[in-house]
Deep mutational scan, measured.
Amino acid sequence: ENVVSAPMPGKVLRVLVRVGDRVRVGQGLLVLEAMKMENEIPSPRDGVVKRILVKEGEIVDTGQPKIELG
């Protein structure tokens, strides 16, 4: 899985990584606000952040790609 998608609709509060960052499985990639709760979205695997496809403040839909890992 190279693309991390939104598990639920919500607002991107914070992006916790930058392009080029090495990430580990379970590491937080971003914080999504859904139903007035903050949810940290974890990396599904070890890898390197290739692209960030969302911006802080953006509203995302379920299944929308957010971060691409290499």
Rank of each mutant, 00 (worst) to 15 (best):
I52D: 03
V19T: 07
Q64Y: 07
A6R: 03
V15I: 15
G20R: 03
L69E: 03
S5H: 12
P9E: 06
K36R: 12
P9F: 10
V60R: 02
G70P: 03
V23N: 01
G10Q: 05
P44Y: 04
V31W: 05
G47Q: 03
A34V: 14
V23C: 07
V23F: 02
R51K: 12
G10A: 06
K66G: 15
G47F: 01
V15Q: 03
V23P: 00
E38P: 09
L13P: 00
V49Q: 01
Q64M: 09
V25A: 14
L13Q: 04
M35F: 13
P65V: 11
G26C: 09
G57D: 06
K66D: 07
R22L: 13
A6K: 04
I41Y: 05
R51Y: 05
L16C: 11
L53E: 03
V25Y: 11
S43R: 01
E58I: 04
L30K: 00
Q27H: 05
E1S: 14
V49P: 01
T62C: 11
R22K: 12
M35G: 14
I41N: 01
V17C: 07
M8D: 00
L69M: 07
M8R: 08
E1F: 12
Q27V: 06
K50Q: 10
E40P: 07
G47T: 03
V48P: 02
L29F: 00
K36Y: 13
V19Y: 03
Q27T: 09
E1R: 11
D21V: 08
D61H: 14
I52V: 10
S5G: 08
N39A: 12
T62S: 13
P9K: 11
P7E: 10
V25C: 12
V31G: 00
N39M: 15
K55N: 10
G20L: 05
V25S: 11
P44E: 05
L69Y: 04
V48A: 04
E58Y: 06
G57L: 05
K55L: 10
R22I: 13
E68L: 15
K50E: 09
K50A: 10
V19S: 05
P7M: 12
Q27E: 09
G63P: 03
E38I: 12
V49S: 00
L29R: 00
K11L: 10
M35T: 08
V23K: 02
P42G: 10
R22V: 13
K55C: 10
L53G: 03
E33A: 08
R22D: 10
V4Q: 04
V15N: 04
K55T: 12
L53I: 06
E33N: 04
E40Q: 10
P65R: 08
G26P: 01
T62A: 15
K55Y: 11
E38G: 05
G70K: 12
L29M: 07
A34T: 13
E56K: 09
L30N: 00
P44K: 04
E58Q: 13
L29P: 00
I67Y: 03
G10P: 02
V3M: 14
V49W: 00
